[in-house]
């Protein structure tokens, strides 16, 4: 407490970052009894809702040691479902890295009528319920398509649905970074003789790289675990267009919970790795300053 009181409000922060930093530097309090009680209640709820059920998935996957887990994953259809999921997710992420960065660039650096509308359009895939997202795509690319394209039951359909639901990730992570990029850094490069293309390649893109990586891992994680938008589109042909999440559903419906848990465990693993990767990236960016 005394540290806050002894800092006169008018004193500028030493590093010029503003008074907010001074305030944040204040050490946190140890738990009071009331806060401790609150924390206890919150932890119990969090455990009941999230931690215990997720542990149940992990334990069920390894109920009888490695055998169920291994046999599930070596099953031909399951393996091809996993490969298809990872492959499609990687492809979609790759497309998003390019397209998402370009969209962010256009939204930040270009000026045109209707730009504000596009800003809202970018978020639509986030806002729509996933099943509706699938239905939305079917209205243009399904049966009765006005452009005579029917992607139901094809890998193209899966690709399209994943492209739709992952659209905002890279745009939304890259956009603010691009906005904050100092004009003088690009000017410095220009006055040192760098062409527009060189500035883009050597100055702008490297500065965006962490944001692109963060957005890409989010998009990849979402694509791996996507379910709702694929239900109506994928067609679930085993070995052909059956993705991991739909495979889990099929196992559940067939009362094969151990197998469902095995595939789910893999998806959980990917989610955890992505969270860890994001943490590493954000810390690295913080260090670069």
């Amino acid at each position: 407490m005394s540290s806050t009181l002894s800092t006169p409000s008018g004193t500028p922060a030493p590093s010029g970052k503003g008074p907010a930093k001074v305030r944040r530097a204040r050490p946190k309090d140890a738990l009071t009894p009331a806060a401790g009680l609150g924390l206890g209640v919150a932890l119990i709820w969090f455990s009941l809702l999230v931690l215990l059920p997720l542990s149940a998935v992990v334990l069920t996957a390894f109920d009888d040691g490695w055998s169920t887990f291994a046999s599930t994953l070596t099953d031909r259809d399951t393996r091809s479902a996993l490969l298809l999921t990872v492959g499609e997710a990687a492809l979609v992420t790759l497309v998003n890295v390019v397209v998402g960065t370009v969209i962010a660039w256009v939204l930040v650096r270009d000026q045109f009528i209707g730009k504000r509308l596009l800003e809202v359009v970018i978020d639509v895939p986030f806002a729509l319920p996933t099943i509706v997202a699938g239905l939305v795509l079917l209205s243009l690319y399904g049966p009765r398509s006005p452009v005579s394209v029917n992607v139901v039951g094809t890998r193209t359909g899966i690709f399209l649905a994943l492209l739709f639901v992952t659209l905002p990730f890279i745009v939304r992570t890259v956009q603010p970074v691009l906005q904050e990029l100092d004009a003088d850094v690009e000017e410095a490069a220009a006055s040192l003789g760098a062409s527009q293309f060189t500035i883009l390649r050597r100055i702008v893109l490297p500065s965006l790289a962490p944001a692109i990586a963060a957005g890409a891992s989010l998009a990849f994680a979402r694509a791996i675990s996507e379910f709702g938008s694929l239900v109506l589109i994928a067609g679930n042909i085993p070995g052909e267009t059956e993705v991991a999440s739909l495979k889990i559903l099929k196992f559940i419906e067939g009362d094969n919970y151990a197998a469902a848990a095995s595939v789910a465990f893999l998806l959980l693993l990917v989610a955890t790795v992505v969270i860890a990767a994001l943490d590493v990236i954000s810390r690295r960016v913080a260090r670069r300053g």
């Binding site: 100092d182 003088d184 850094v185 000017e187 410095a188 490069a189 006055s191 100055i203 490297p206 500065s207 790289a209 670069r288 300053g289």
Partner: peptide, 11 residues
């Protein structure tokens, strides 16, 4: 050209 805020290439 030297800028007020250094314009360092941070990466």
């Amino acid at each position: 050209f030297v800028f007020q805020h250094y314009a360092a290439f941070k990466h």
